[in-house]
Amino acid sequence: MKDKQDIEDIISRYWDGDTSLEEEAQMRAALQEESSLDPAALALTTFFQKEKQVQSTRPLEIPAQAKVRSLWSRYRALAAVLVVALGAFFFLQQGNVTSTSDTFQDPDQAFAEVVEALQFISGKMNSGMTTAGSSLEKVQPLDDIFN
């Protein structure tokens, strides 16, 4: 512990802003023991020591998680708009299917369309069977070898 003269010198330099952190700690300790050394310095140091006890009350959030949450909160409105827009798009698409031009009110016209469609499919099937038959003839020798 420094003697009184040293402490008074430190206090004097404290007011001049010319003390080190270590000297200021010595000054605080000395003032706690003898407040008459400088009541104003004691009051100030007491005030600042109490302020040092102030703490944050909010729990520490891990920044990486906070960033994810922050990004989510920023873009969730955009995501909601996209979902609604996509929903509306598909809904309208469904509506278009029910009102296509190949729906007929006249049964005769509908029957004619069905016949035409079946003839088209039949023609394609015949063509396919012919192609398949010629291909089968080509692989027949291999079939004879293995069987």
């Binding site: 102030v54 944050s56 959030e61 920044p63 906070a66």
Partner: peptide, 26 residues
């Protein structure tokens, strides 16, 4: 806590200072 006190000294508002601390950490 140190960052909070400093933000508090500048802003004078606890919740705002807490927000600043979170932003600083991020």
């Amino acid at each position: 806590d140190k960052l909070f006190r400093y933000a508090m000294r500048i802003l004078g508002d606890g919740p705002e200072a807490e927000d600043v601390v979170q932003d600083v950490l991020i």
